[in-house]
Write a protein that binds this DNA or RNA. Structure first.
Lengths: 352, 352
DNA sequence: CATTGGCACTCGGCGCTGGTGAGTGCTAAT
DNA sequence: ATTAGCACTCACCAGCGCCGAGTGCCAATG
């Protein structure tokens, strides 16, 4: 197992042909098929030699002694990084995607669900979308509604029109009038501040003990909400398109499918997985995680194609798909990017 | 195919034994096994005779000539309606379910998602929960936040702490002060009213043209939000636990699974299916739809166990599970009912 | 010396076959 | 009406041999 990083032109061409043939048919591809379909300029014997060295240096695999070759994870990696030519977004795809994003969407959640739906549709894989994390969580608006004598509902609007609600107990009796007065006052003083600034604020002169207590409690819970939000662990994770996996022969085995679903349906696990991935080294914004690279045993044979959507400087989140490693990256990758851009634009419109 | 409605005691006992044996093992059950395990009082030959008449009159099926018997849909129906003895909710199940419903849940959506999660867990099937249709959606609180010179964000809190956000255009220039004043005023006048009452309200005397315009626009959009919510066809439908199906041998065939998923993942289709079912003839509140009774080709071999949750007189929705027809109804049915009750109680607490 | 045609070899997939056993239907005895 | 006995049926499975795609190697070629 030699670890050269560069392949000569012919090896590249052959690797590329193997990947694209295999992704289409799902059948190990042999030297003769390659000679005929893709690489007429060399005989099957020559290609056989090249194939066997490609196996030796780890870019291809041979399922069994007398079978054709399939790409290894390393082979896919090389393909994605150096050989792949992204396909254009077709008009048909545009027609499917665009109507999903209205010029003025109503709320973040619906937007993301629609995005997940259409992304699953155009990629034939499971789509995954995480809720936007406010980047510099600043307070835009707050409101306190009395529920009963002992509880109030705190409504917090953060930068990016991220609406949060939170029920908290009241230690002193009060009424809606008082709560409204307090929230109006807090709106004036706290607007535009981030959690640290709010915490650093000197206590306001309280007209009376009740008001002071309530104000302090409210502020404490505002901080709680603002801080718990950006944290990430409990952000919403939406997924859609599980049925698409069933069309792939690699999930004909139900056990395999279950392993994958165990990850996908467990929102917490999925969220952690996504945040553990470093999306930094993305190519043109799209990051491809191939098979074992995710270091999650259950995702053997699966790949992730992920990217980050951004709404100006206000918020960002992760969007992408999970599918079999044998995936049409050249098609999926630009489509993920396209939907991601649409999400970003729609969010920007939403955030005003 | 004779259609008597009543079976003699021995036939009942045999049918019951077949159903419970088959639901446990998934293997067609034969006369000898029955004689040994369940019905020592008769010989296998006698049981054989009874079995063959049960096949004749349509309560059992024989997969092939020399195989054991399995219940037909009609057999399951008879079992569920007359023979089944519901199991007690075990302490273990209580321990799984109860903590999911906090004494003070934060919001409807989260509540339902948690319910779906835990219901899937304790029934080993796919859980389905529809959002509560507000019987009389009442306004609890509203707020208008200025976004830019031309748009404002309307925040509406409905009964049940259902928080809605909605961006709308402003036709006249204004500032946050004015908007806050208007929303405070509207809060006083509109609180506790349903859409019809709001619409019927006489226009308030406006201090000036700008305020009057803004108020009218705000009210129009409040109505829009309140009405679009309860509408019904587009209520949220939450599902969870698809992976549970994979454990069932009947879904070893991926094609079958896909048919079912096509229904489950298509929120619209699922919503329509649920609302097309008449939950009236429910036994003790739980309605069991067996196999072909749903009249949806793709759900052949599947059953639904559904019930209605209620929060006082305020709201109601549907909750239940979808699983293979070979299901432990005696266990699933009470568990669906139990979770449903918990949902109802939690909702009531939430609605205050 | 890289390339190529030729050729023997390998091995998974498929269809055929016969044995096995669970389960039945029928008949005759109680 | 019930039951013991028995011949019969048929899905399931393991073993077998064929087929063919595909390989690895070698000797010939420019």
């Amino acid at each position: 197992m030699d670890f050269e990083l560069t392949l000569d032109a012919r090896k590249q061409q052959i690797l590329k042909a193997v990947v694209s043939d295999y992704t289409e048919t799902g059948v190990p591809v042999g030297s003769v098929a390659l000679a005929i379909k893709h690489l007429g300029s060399w005989s099957s014997a020559t290609i056989r030699n090249e194939l066997s060295t490609l196996v030796e240096i780890g870019y291809l695999l041979q399922p069994h002694a007398s079978a054709g070759r399939i790409p290894s994870d390393r082979g896919y990696r090389y393909y994605v990084d150096f050989l792949m030519e992204e396909e254009q977004i077709s008009a048909a795809v545009r027609r499917q995607v665009d109507p999903v994003f209205p010029t003025r969407p109503a709320a973040v959640e619906e937007l993301l669900e629609a995005a997940a739906m259409v992304l699953a549709l155009v990629t034939d894989a499971v789509s995954i979308v995480t809720g936007p994390r406010a980047l510099g969580a600043r307070l835009k608006h707050l409101d306190v509604v009395s529920l009963d004598s002992e509880h109030a509902l705190l409504i917090v609007l953060l930068d990016g029109n991220l609406l949060q609600q939170h029920v908290f107990p009241l230690t002193v009796q009060t009424d809606q009038e008082t709560l409204s007065r307090i929230s109006a006052e807090l709106n004036r003083t706290l607007r535009g501040l981030d959690p640290d600034a709010i915490e650093a604020l000197p206590p306001l002169p309280g007209d009376d003990a009740v008001t002071a207590t309530l104000r302090a409690e409210t502020i404490a819970h505002v901080l709680l909400v603002m801080r718990s939000d950006g944290a990430g662990d409990d952000t919403v994770v939406i997924h859609d398109g599980v049925r698409n996996l069933l069309r792939q022969p690699e999930f004909g085995d139900v056990v395999r499918l279950r392993q994958v679903l165990d990850i996908v349906e467990e929102e917490r696990a999925l969220g952690q997985l996504l945040s553990s991935l470093d999306l930094g080294k993305a190519v043109q914004g799209v990051h491809v995680v191939i098979g074992a690279e995710a270091e999650v045993e259950q995702l053997r044979g699966c790949s992730l194609v992920l990217t980050t959507y951004r709404a100006g400087d206000a918020a960002r989140g992760t969007i992408g798909v999970l599918g079999p490693t044998r995936m049409r990256y050249s098609q999926v990758s630009p489509r993920v990017r396209y939907v991601s851009q649409r999400v970003g634009q729609a969010l920007e419109r939403l955030l005003g």
